[in-house]
């Protein structure tokens, strides 16, 4: 068995184990951590395919930023409690099982056939000679990105910026909402003060003495 094969099986075990764990773990933080395991294992597959740039981007973007944001939100909102297994939609589980089975069949049917995905490697190896120059895969990806696919690349960038601006506009509170929030806070303050007075009246020594 070559080193590549051994690494593939280690990576496959990690990726599958992590993916199963994401679904089966009952604590959302554990799920997020197992997702990181899967993402790093997928980065290992990219390395085995000689796609070092994609592997690095996989770890930087997914493991380093996206899952960190997941965890940030989980911690900030305090939703890190165990989920109940009660299912409010009764037909959801059988439907999920059936669709999962369909997906599995699709993958087995499509694996090794090229009529759905187009001929493999039409653009050539991602490492090697281009016009007499010896280029690594980082350089080749850069060259393709900034020549053949420049428009798609720039448009994707613009799309992301628009999405960010849109999110800010949606999150910005309108005038009416700000008033409602202020009223909400005032009520909360009054309740807290009433509770404090009650507590002070009950305890014989008072608070802080």
């Amino acid at each position: 068995m070559t080193v590549e094969t051994a690494l593939f099986f280690i990576g496959a075990a990690l990726a599958l184990g992590g993916a199963l764990g994401v679904v089966l773990a009952r604590n959302p933080v554990h799920s997020a951590l197992l997702l990181v395991v899967t993402l790093v294992a997928v980065a290992l597959f990219f390395l085995l395919l000689d796609a070092q740039l994609v592997a690095a981007v996989q770890v930087i973007v997914y493991a380093g930023a996206i899952v960190v944001l997941f965890l940030f939100v989980i911690m900030l909102l305090g939703v890190d409690r165990e989920e109940s297994l009660h299912d409010p939609v009764p037909f959801q589980r059988p439907a999920a099982l059936a669709l999962g089975a369909v997906l599995l069949v699709e993958i087995f049917v499509l694996a090794g056939r090229t009529w759905a995905t187009g001929a493999s490697s039409t653009r050539g190896s991602i490492d090697g000679q281009v016009g007499g120059e010896d280029l690594g895969n980082v350089e080749r990806v850069a060259r393709v990105l900034f020549t053949d696919f420049l428009w798609a690349f720039e448009l994707t960038a613009a799309l992301l910026v628009i999405a960010v601006v849109g999110a800010v506009v949606l999150a910005r509170r309108s005038g009416q909402q700000a008033e409602l929030d202020a009223a909400d806070q005032e009520i909360g303050r009054q309740i807290a003060e009433a509770e404090l007075e009650e507590y002070e009246a009950e305890s014989p020594t008072g608070v802080g003495s």
């Binding site: 740039l53 690095a56 981007v57 770890v59 930087i60 493991a63 380093g64 930023a65 960190v68």
Partner: peptide, 9 residues
Amino acid sequence: LWLLAMSGL
């Protein structure tokens, strides 16, 4: 890029 990946992890 390895450095960026590791500082993320």
